[in-house]
Write a protein that binds this DNA or RNA. Structure first.
Lengths: 213, 213
DNA sequence: GGTGATAAGTTATCACTGATCGATTATTGT
DNA sequence: ACAATAATCGATCAGTGATAACTTATCACC
């Protein structure tokens, strides 16, 4: 009565990669539904329809699964950032639109965002040893695209500061703060979300760009 | 050769509360050294010199230990915020100083900060069920003190926006972003820390306050 | 159509985690 | 000395991530 234990049929010989996709799909769904730490490898395996050790034929550790999910999500952010840059003109409106891209991405991919920027890595560096810098490098890739956009507004002479790295890091931190808090503290008595986002972005724009009160 | 297992002498009858302090001290040290998730209750117990189940005479769950640490840390932040408000005058300089109080607190109490604002709570609300809102309420206490300061600059007519809740949430998010990233991603190629903080704070100030470029 | 190689997946197990139970100390007021 | 009880321990549980050794299905080839 308790465990039907539906097993997914064995994959044909060359098709192990397909199972890998199934695992990533199941993991993403479970993470989205229950959060990262509360989902066990056994739950993932059951959702896929295989035994728990079978996961380890495709991923060395559990963290590798989350890392992979995160890397994929960030490739999306990179795309969006590149799209934002493609039709970018150094104006305040367009600048705000670019900031908005980051916020929207974070709120649409909360779990990837968590893995990339909010997950505890362990101060001893164990996490880094296991999965490497790959998820973070993916994040930095997006960061660089963002820096390019900031570079354009600086070259147009619109910024208060003229050190692109410095402005970019500051703006990134500012955006991350909002995104991470909205994700991690959804039950906080926030002002209406859309209003808050708009307010936050225009504050960052005022802080970074000259003129245009 | 492996385990000396030094035991702390049993506490006299009324002095259980003293042991409670020892547990909190040991836990804070271990968390600071190794991170939150990598420290087990057995490690905490050994550091104190008692058995692992003995912890449960003082704390219902492991999360209660971290929650308590966080609450204590935030009472310090509340104090600092009240101090900042005591000699507050509605000027740009003083406003920046108040923002700086938050940043300094976060960087000086990274573990408490993690527990309060960065720890995964589980989307199903399990964390909340166990330890309650207490750590977050402590954080909100500090938030309210901060809101009072923001209220003063608004009453002085210095702010762009005039909705105190809105500005405060935006500024808080802005500050949190920097603090949480510096804590969680210490290995990121940041610009020199002091410069970054100063730059970030002045950006937030420009974004929130009128005049004073 | 049998055969051997091997990809795909299994069961059993390990060390460890947070947590609970019942028993056992040691201290205290009487 | 004695009973009450605060303080604590050893044994144990279910659940975790991970590993080792084994089985089974599929494939290419003669």
């Amino acid at each position: 009565m308790t465990a039907p234990k539906v097993r997914s049929p064995r994959k044909p010989k060359g098709q192990g990669a397909e199972r890998r996709e199934e695992i990533l799909d199941a993991a993403l769904k479970l993470f989205s539904a229950k959060g990262l730490h509360t989902v066990s490898t056994r739950q993932i395996a059951e959702a896929v329809g295989i035994s728990q050790p079978a996961l380890y034929a495709y991923f060395a550790t559990k963290d590798d699964i989350t890392a992979e999910l995160c890397i994929r999500a960030f490739s999306i952010l990179v795309e969006r950032m590149e799209a934002a840059r493609a039709d970018f003109t150094p104006t305040a409106e367009c600048f705000e639109k670019a900031l908005r891209v980051y916020v929207d991405f974070g709120l649409e991919n909360p779990d990837a965002y968590r893995v990339a920027f909010m997950v505890e890595k362990g101060l001893d560096g164990t996490y880094k040893e296991r999965v490497g810098d790959r998820p973070m490098m993916a994040g930095i890739g997006a960061f660089q695209r963002f820096a390019e956009i900031v570079g354009e507004v600086r070259d147009a002479g619109l910024t208060h500061d003229d050190d692109v790295q410095r402005i970019t890091q500051t703006l990134w931190a500012g955006l991350h703060g909002l995104v991470s808090l909205l994700i991690a503290r959804a039950d906080f008595p926030w002002v209406e979300r859309e209003v808050l986002i708009a307010c936050h972005i225009s504050l960052l724009r005022r802080g970074a760009l000259k003129g245009v009160a």
